[in-house]
Nucleic acid binder design. Structure first.
Lengths: 255, 255
DNA sequence: TTAATAGTGTCTGTGAGACAATATGTC
DNA sequence: GACATATTGTCTCACAGACACTATTAA
């Protein structure tokens, strides 16, 4: 928040008090791009809108900020994530905000978009009062603009695009994909998650070196996986934040 | 923006129409972290608040979204940047949003923060109606919490901190500091800008190689700089976006 | 000729990418 | 023992970091 008195148009009604600025207030919402890895693909959760505007169309899960219940934006996002996906401690990161006069026919609106990474194993989708349906969509198919695909509500396609871009970008140098898998997971599984998100193969040897050097994995015993030699299972040492692998530029360890 | 009907408290008045949701709307503002390089230091612009809340304290330039004038958030940020600093085509990037019940005594509020990079050469500060004063502050001094320093208004210190962090982080692998200098600039000047932002020396040879390989500089003739051998001047090939230098991970040129 | 800065060249260690070899489990 | 996957090892080469050298101007 900030300064109080930008130029007011003289035709507007007089301010009633410094305590409550009389600027017309935009609608304020929070939307979520919830990612997971399912069926060897990067997927995200959408809900079908039951009411106007954009009734019947798919949209990101989200909704209005409830100033009586939500202490702040992050708490609002957590609440909606709980309501829609029943998740407790996911990775949650702010993606940015989108606001303007035309994105919602009900008026000038601004949404605060968050990106969440969750494992999908044994998950049951819950529906909000306004969502007549919810389903997972492959990110690439959604953005490819396949013929016959319905457009998303509002400007949600732009938000999804930003989310996918942010995720792909960060996966290049962080341990983020680990948040997409149920624990314990194995290194080959983690590698597959990287490959699915990045859309390209990753070298096995370098991958292992990198992950283990990151020091964010804790051994959790061998995990029999049907076929042959059982791989080592791992858990995250901390769910607080992803590990950032060294970047370019600057003295060796100082990135 | 998003779904319409999250749980409403039953004590609230009934919705008058789907067209205008009756959720109490948070105050909505835009704030700017305006960076420049002056006196061999990374500095940012603050304005002194003339009215409550936080009257007399320094704050980020910004203010309420004017839904009659601002087509979207970015336009609102551009307008405020024009009003405060009189800049036309700066680098402008969204930093994130901060919202909650307690950050503004007037009520639940959310701000959309933007970061701007501008050259300071020959600039004249302009003041909004609510800013009785404006001045440049060194980023490091501001965040060091020097004894005697007054705290910033609202949660602006957190926003400044995020801005400095984002800038420093991106400078490691982008051409962003070029937006801090007036054109034409020389490679030694650009290098000094990098060093000032990063707070550490940078090797000359590697720096030149990297910059020229980036392909974002256009020669603009020799620029006499008082002392001895005149260096080559450069302009940006494009002011649209910074160049991203190659990262780690992945096939050689594919970062 | 000297001073001061601009600009280039060279050496070297690190580390990622590519690929090969080995280990360890089930059938 | 055969097979499939997990895990480890080795080789190579590009590149960044460090540092030395040359170039070009004014006085």
């Amino acid at each position: 928040m900030a300064a109080a008195g930008p130029t007011r148009r003289s035709t507007a009604p007089p301010a009633k008090a410094a305590d409550a600025p009389d600027f017309p207030r935009p609608l304020t919402t929070v939307d979520l791009v919830i990612f997971t890895v399912r069926d060897e693909a990067l997927q995200l959760l959408l809900v079908r809108r039951a009411e106007p505007p954009f009734a019947g169309q798919w949209a990101l899960p989200g909704g209005f900020v409830d100033i009586a219940r939500d202490a702040d934006l992050q708490a609002c996002a957590s609440r909606k994530l709980r309501e829609k996906a029943g998740v407790q401690s996911p990775y949650l990161e702010q993606l940015g905000s989108w606001g303007g006069a035309r994105r919602d026919p009900r008026g000038w609106s601004a949404t605060h978009a968050y990106m969440a990474l969750i494992p999908t194993e044994g998950m049951t989708l819950r529906h909000g009062a306004n969502a007549s349906d919810a389903a997972w969509f492959e990110a690439d198919e959604l953005l490819a603009g396949t013929a016959g695909a319905q457009p998303l509500a509002f400007d949600h396609e732009a938000i999804v695009r930003a989310g996918v871009e942010r995720l792909r970008s960060k996966v290049e140098y962080t341990s983020l994909p680990a948040f997409l898998l149920p624990e314990p997971f194995t290194l080959p599984e983690l590698q597959r998650a990287y490959e699915v998100v990045l859309g390209r193969p990753v070298d096995k040897s370098g991958f292992r070196t990198r992950m283990l050097a990151g020091g964010f994995l804790v051994e959790a015993g061998l995990v029999p996986r049907g076929t042959r030699r059982p791989p080592m299972g791992y858990r995250l040492a901390s769910r607080d934040a992803p590990v950032v692998f060294p970047r370019t530029f600057g003295p060796r360890g100082a990135g």
